[in-house]
Design a binder for these strands. Structure first.
Lengths: 161, 161
DNA sequence: CACGATCGACAACCCCATTGTCTATTAAGG
DNA sequence: CCTTAATAGACAATGGGGTTGTCGATCGTG
């Protein structure tokens, strides 16, 4: 009875690397958003972060949908939410009367800058604990192992299937 | 014009650690599921993997809902899907007439074993490329930095908000 | 200037998760 | 025992978020 925690299907040694990467990612993201919440951006979610990355310097709703792996209508809904909270705005494209360009507002840029700063701070804290050598070794290793992969932003659809 | 790729809000050095961890995680998971698809488990999604982890050696629908951070009804729906594909089964709890225990079928155990094996293989491939020393250094570092965090399974709700 | 493609808006639909309610069962205490 | 509070799972009603489909306006190309 007391051994019920020992599964009949023991995972082999070395199979926990994905979990470790996920845990590390989550730890950082959680810390970032805890800080953002204190800075007056409590409604800002991890998903918004990748949306910001997908927006970049400005995109149309259609293009954003493609990048996020959802329909343009779904992207439009996401935009509405961010617009309501004052993070993004939609302006007419002077070069294309059909398009409206979605871009970050000053408030949106502010969150992004703060997020970047917190991430850098957290990275520094990790480096302090691990040593700068080990820290850069990890980053270099991850860069090397993911060099052939393109950065994709369709996280929810990818994970949930 | 040619510089439009340079954003006006440059991310500071070191702020890409979360992205690197996410990319590494995704790379591994994508490779795992590519292999699983070839082994006759094409319908098996990343979300199913964390569900399996949450199921462990057997849980009730209510407990599974709590672990996944969703309602017990939502957990029930997820179970229905996995049941339909033959990965899990629900058996009456001999010790509690109210409960039905959800647990992996032999087919479910098979996917899990294969997934574990592929993960270990991928880890070995990484180690081959990076050197065993750097590989274990990464794992140790990640374990150290996430030691105080508990493993949670509420990924979708956590990320999407 | 004609034609096909694309943008965004609008509408209808659907899936999934949520809350609320119900019955059966369990566990704890008088 | 017997009462009472808590919990498991089934069922129903609701709502949000996503999808497809359609439309007029605009762009690009030949």
């Amino acid at each position: 009875m007391g051994l019920s925690i020992v599964s009949s299907t023991l995972p082999p040694r070395g199979s926990d690397l994905p979990l470790l990467l996920l845990l590390g990612f989550r730890a950082l993201i959680d810390d970032v958003h805890a800080e953002l919440a204190e800075a007056g951006h409590a409604g800002f979610r991890p998903l918004h972060g990748v949306t910001f990355k997908a927006i970049g310097d400005g995109v149309t709703a259609s293009e954003l949908g493609r990048r996020l792996g959802v329909s343009k209508q779904a992207a439009g809904k996401t935009i509405e939410g961010l617009e309501r909270e004052g993070y993004v705005e939609r302006v007419s494209d002077p070069g294309d009367a059909r398009s409206k360009i979605i871009r970050l507002t000053p408030r949106g840029v502010d969150v992004q800058q703060q997020a970047f700063k917190v991430m850098a701070d957290l990275r520094a804290r990790w480096a302090e604990r691990l040593g700068e050598g080990r820290m850069t070794a990890i980053e270099d290793a991850l860069r090397e192992m993911t060099a052939d992969r393109e950065t994709r932003f369709d996280i929810p659809g990818w994970f949930n299937g």
